[in-house]
Amino acid sequence: MLIRFWGTRGSLPAPLDYRAVRAKIRDALIAARNQSLDTAEAVDAFIDQRLPFSVSGTFGGNTSCVELVTGGDEYVLCDLGSGVREFGNRLLAKYGPGKHHRFNVFMSHLHWDHVMGFPFFTPSYIPGNVIRIHGCHQVIREALQRQQSSPGFPVDFKMLGATIEFVEMEPGRTYDVAGLSVRPFLQNHGGDSYGYRFSGAGKTVVYSTDSEHKFDVLEDCPFIEYFHDADVLIFDAMYSLADQISVKEDWGHSSNMVGVELALTAGARHLVMFHHEPIHDDRTLEKILGETRRYADIVRPGHELTITSAYDGLEIVV
């Protein structure tokens, strides 16, 4: 299985402005002084090996959309944030509009940042495509219809050419979809959100975003079971712990430290920090990643947990 991240930002898109780009160029040029960069290969090696990611790249600004590549014929996506626009465009660029596809989308919930990409998902306009939208909320159809209607959007939902189906799921039950075993679970978030535990070909990926954790005893937390033995855990690490339990308490999000503790206790192998706070720039996100790895070392020296901070375009082979 392969995980491809199309959108990793929380709450709303957060594009770079010219100042941020200029700052990266400036930092790169300063780092390049006195380097031997006479060939294209030397330049590539310098960018890839000598520059920090916050300078050579960006975590990106699209909101939640994650693809699970199973090797089967059908596409599997989690959420329809602004990242799904890029997913659709890449698909069309690769195959053109003549080839028809089947998509399975799993919705964590219906807040703006998780649905806003759908009106710009070009495959939804093409007859012959089939889009099955799965989720535990009863109002998914209404939410998507409402955002794609006058006066908010010029093309009404009923004008979409693809066949769009809605599949209501129950948390705690296990479903077989597109060759994967899928189990949704309830999370603590305004209006409820749902995480998904996907298993296939001996691998398990958990998608758990927009989920606040308020537990007194870690071992009693049901998420230990949901995350148990996961090969990859995609986790809402939007806030610092201090923010999560003070000014932003009950805002429905979690922190990097809670992610580490849950992942280690559950025996997960790879923690992927996700749903980044939009006010954080690349340098801040990189710093938080370093701190999160350090915290894991403090909690359990010698642990084998891999920790990654998701970015738009990231691919993880499971």
Binding site: S240, L241, A242, D243, S255, M257, R294, Y295, I298
Partner: peptide, 15 residues
Amino acid sequence: PVVKEIFEISRFSLV
């Protein structure tokens, strides 16, 4: 030193 690090990682030193 370790607890100080945890206060910084958690941003508790700000609150």
